Simulated assay, not measured.
Amino acid sequence: MLVPTNRKQGWFSREKENMLFIHVPKCGGKFVEKAFEPWIRKCPSRRIAEAAGHLTWREYNSVFGKHDIDIAAMTSFAVVRNPWDWHVSWFHYIRQDEGGLLSGHAIEATLFQAFSFTDYIAWLEDDDAPASPQNYIKSQLKDFLTDENGEIAVSHILRQETLNEDLRALAVKLDLAIHIGDRRINTSQREGYRKYYSDQDCERIALRHRDDLDLFGYTF
């Protein structure tokens, strides 16, 4: 189901060519982008070089402001994911990314070759551990979605766990014709995420993502 936000929906335009997809890494973003073509291609984020990549709402706001684009007038949406599952996905994605060519995390791609999943959790908590400039993995999900006051600024938040259903609901709400594929892009064939966690590691992620758990109601 769609997650409600604390922003007034009336602040956002329903114009079909004024949409912003905030792509939280490892949350089914490529699947979403494919479904919402050609609408997403018309977003300013596709023609402004500074807006490329996995920007947060605050970063988009800053970049768009330099180009006299009002982000508050846009219909923005994003996808979130269970934090415990999110980290299992990150660990395997980067570990399998030889040289970090796809992820852009070359340092982590090398480090994780010798890591167990518990080692990965310990690395997350070590602020002095070697890491690539991107800080995606060590962020909370809410960091992508909040304004300068820490308030949710995205008008629609979908869940990776119910993505097909949420996309259909959003398309109906925005009166958009979209094509939703039969399966996700880059969907993992791994077993359930719970098998990777000890009790201690589970608690570490719970503490790390306490704001996400409060906002989105995820449980282990």
Score class of each variant (00 low, 15 high):
55 L>R: 15
56 T>W: 13
103 S>P: 06
188 S>G: 02
154 V>Y: 11
65 G>I: 05
140 Q>N: 12
63 V>H: 07
70 D>K: 04
176 L>P: 01
135 N>V: 07
72 A>D: 11
77 F>K: 07
131 A>C: 14
78 A>S: 15
155 S>I: 09
101 L>Q: 11
87 H>K: 07
186 N>L: 08
123 W>H: 05
157 I>L: 11
93 Y>M: 02
89 S>Q: 09
114 A>P: 01
162 T>N: 11
124 L>K: 03
53 G>L: 12
55 L>I: 08
171 A>S: 12
172 V>C: 03
99 G>F: 14
56 T>C: 09
107 I>L: 08
75 T>P: 01
187 T>M: 09
60 Y>H: 14
120 Y>H: 05
149 N>A: 14
109 A>N: 13
167 L>E: 05
88 V>K: 08
91 F>W: 13
164 N>H: 14
148 E>H: 14
176 L>D: 05
170 L>C: 01
117 F>G: 02
84 W>H: 01
85 D>W: 06
58 R>Q: 13
79 V>W: 02
93 Y>L: 01
156 H>K: 10
57 W>P: 01
90 W>Y: 15
68 D>H: 14
178 I>Y: 10
111 L>R: 15
67 H>P: 02
73 A>C: 03
64 F>L: 12
176 L>E: 00
78 A>F: 07
103 S>W: 14
118 T>A: 15
55 L>T: 09
111 L>N: 13
107 I>K: 13
134 Q>M: 10
180 I>Q: 03
67 H>G: 04
114 A>N: 13
105 H>R: 10
187 T>N: 09
127 D>P: 05
134 Q>R: 11
115 F>W: 13
132 S>K: 08
117 F>T: 07
108 E>Y: 10
188 S>I: 07
150 G>H: 12
128 D>L: 12
168 R>S: 08
62 S>T: 09
133 P>D: 10
116 S>W: 12
82 N>P: 02
101 L>E: 13
175 D>L: 01
57 W>K: 01
174 L>P: 00
78 A>Y: 05
123 W>A: 03
166 D>E: 03
165 E>C: 05
169 A>H: 05
86 W>Y: 03
60 Y>K: 03
66 K>I: 06
79 V>H: 04
100 G>T: 13
140 Q>V: 05
90 W>P: 03
69 I>P: 03
133 P>R: 13
95 R>I: 00
109 A>G: 12
111 L>H: 13
106 A>I: 10
117 F>W: 09
117 F>R: 06
63 V>I: 15
141 L>T: 12
114 A>K: 15
156 H>P: 00
79 V>M: 01
143 D>C: 10
113 Q>K: 15
96 Q>V: 01
94 I>Y: 08
122 A>M: 08
109 A>Y: 14
178 I>E: 02
132 S>E: 07
63 V>F: 11
180 I>S: 00
188 S>P: 01
122 A>I: 11
117 F>H: 06
186 N>V: 03
155 S>D: 09
98 E>N: 07
53 G>T: 10
